[in-house]
């Protein structure tokens, strides 16, 4: 799975933060996302589904999507000029799994 990219795995990316409080504070950090390939399918709906939807839903989609199973907070330090800095908290993914798709946005 790991080598082929199948399944759902941690994937590092850079996040750049700029804050305007007391001047320009900034920082670039590596956090983790979940990226991958999970199974999904679509096929003709059963008659009970047709009836319940007034014959509008003639396709049924059964799907899994790559999701963040566990998140972790990390503390980072923004640099604001030579002597002054600001702490803030970021989220990063800790574990991933193929699970429920976000229906509202998928």
């Amino acid at each position: 799975d790991e080598a082929s990219g199948l399944g759902c795995h941690l994937h590092s990316f850079n996040v750049t933060i700029k804050s305007d409080r007391r001047g320009s504070c900034h920082g670039t950090y590596i956090v983790q996302a979940c990226v991958g390939y999970c199974e999904s399918s679509a096929f003709p709906s059963k008659y009970s589904v047709l009836l319940a939807s007034s014959f509008k839903h003639n396709i049924t989609s059964v799907s899994q999507c790559c999701t963040i199973a566990k998140m972790q907070k990390i503390k980072v330090c923004l640099h604001c000029g030579a002597s002054w800095h600001e702490n803030m908290e970021l989220f990063t993914a800790k574990t991933c799994q193929c699970d429920m798709c976000r229906l509202s946005r998928y």
Binding site: V15, Q32, E39, S41, I68, L90
Partner: peptide
């Protein structure tokens, strides 16, 4: 004929 496969999906943390 119906549809089957594995699509690329992701979730990432945002601020």
């Amino acid at each position: 004929d119906a549809c089957w496969g594995r699509c690329e999906t992701w979730e990432k943390p945002v601020l």
